[in-house]
């Protein structure tokens, strides 16, 4: 069974003073997320990621199409007992303490009264908020709120997690911790659907990703496939400068650092390059396929979509690359 099934989902608004102009926020989205996978939902700001999540959470209503979570229609409020949701840059009730907040959410999700207290404390510890249980949330920093947000999303032990930009607002250490936490939750068997405009997060975490721009799905697939798909080159490293001229003649990029030389050549030229090195008595060190990064793939997909709509540069400029 698919954890999430989305079919022909569309959302458009009427905008303008007389509500005559129609703005499409999400266009005919269809995708499936398998149980137990980490699914990355990528796109620049304003691509329609948050709209998709709000539609799935029942916060907005689609103009067309339908979606199912764990085989049940999203209208069924009971579905949401097994769903955890972290909104983008969450903000909580100022005058509650972190523990009270989690207990409240546990109540709403139907966690039995006996377990609530223990569960709340455990989750706060898990997201690194141990010791702040009895602090009112108005005293929390942005990063702490983000952690509390993750805690509330998992307090009722959901099967599926929807995380909207889970790493935003965190420092590098916090980002790594959240990344590890997501990995841990994945290992526990939870399905995780998270949106991000930060590619490195997706690259390290996701099993599969979907790329969204201007409300339209631009690409979807297994991360490795997406990358392998575009990588037809290999990197060859060897010792001995005698072979350099011959290899570089094979239409390759060459770099030499003292005795060590590197060249990137097309796969079809690999045999010729190795032959050239042998002939020159060079010492072959390594041959590795060159991977395109997800970022390159991403930029390419967005530019493809944008050439039709124009303004490719502005779109790709909003993509953030962090490591």
């Amino acid at each position: 069974m698919n954890a999430i099934e989305i079919s022909g989902l569309q959302k458009s608004y009427s905008v303008g003073f007389f509500r005559k102009t129609e703005k499409v926020a999400l266009k005919d989205l269809s995708l499936e997320v398998h149980e137990g996978e980490i699914f990355g939902y990528l796109g620049p700001n304003g691509a329609g990621k948050t709209t998709t999540l709000k539609l799935l959470m029942g916060l907005m209503f689609p103009t067309r199409g339908w979606a199912k979570i764990l085989g049940k229609d999203i209208d069924d409020p009971l579905v949401r007992a097994s769903v955890g949701f972290l909104p983008e840059q969450p903000y909580f009730y100022d005058y509650l303490t972190a523990a009270e907040l989690l207990e409240y959410y546990a109540q709403l999700s139907g966690v039995p009264a006996k377990e609530r207290g223990a569960r709340a404390r455990k989750m706060l510890e898990r997201v690194g908020l141990a010791g702040s249980e009895n602090t009112q949330l108005r005293k929390f920093s942005k990063g702490m709120l983000q952690r509390a947000g993750i805690a509330q999303a998992i307090v009722h032990d959901p099967k599926i997690l929807f995380l909207d930009e889970p790493m935003s607002g965190l420092d590098p250490i916090g980002r790594r911790e959240v990344r590890d936490l997501i990995q841990e939750l994945h290992d526990e068997g939870k399905t995780i659907f998270f949106s991000t405009h930060i590619l490195s997060d997706a690259e390290t975490l996701c099993d599969r990703v979907a790329v969204l721009n201007k409300g339209e799905l631009r690409g979807i697939g297994v991360v490795a496939d997406l990358l392998a798909d575009s990588g037809n080159k290999v990197e060859v490293v060897w010792q001995g400068s005698a072979a350099t001229a011959a290899v570089c003649a094979l239409n390759a990029e060459c770099h030499t650092t003292g005795e060590i030389a590197r060249a990137i050549v097309a796969k079809t030229m690999l045999d010729a390059a190795i032959d050239a090195i042998r002939r020159a008595k060079g010492n072959l060190i390594s041959v590795t396929p060159v991977q395109t990064t997800l970022e390159e793939y991403f930029l390419k997909r967005i530019e493809q979509g944008a050439t039709a709509g124009g303004n490719a540069k502005a779109d790709s400029a909003v993509l953030e690359v962090k490591t």
Binding site: F61, T63, I74
Partner: peptide
Amino acid sequence: MSQSAIFK
């Protein structure tokens, strides 16, 4: 459920 179906 679409926007218009909420009425039902």
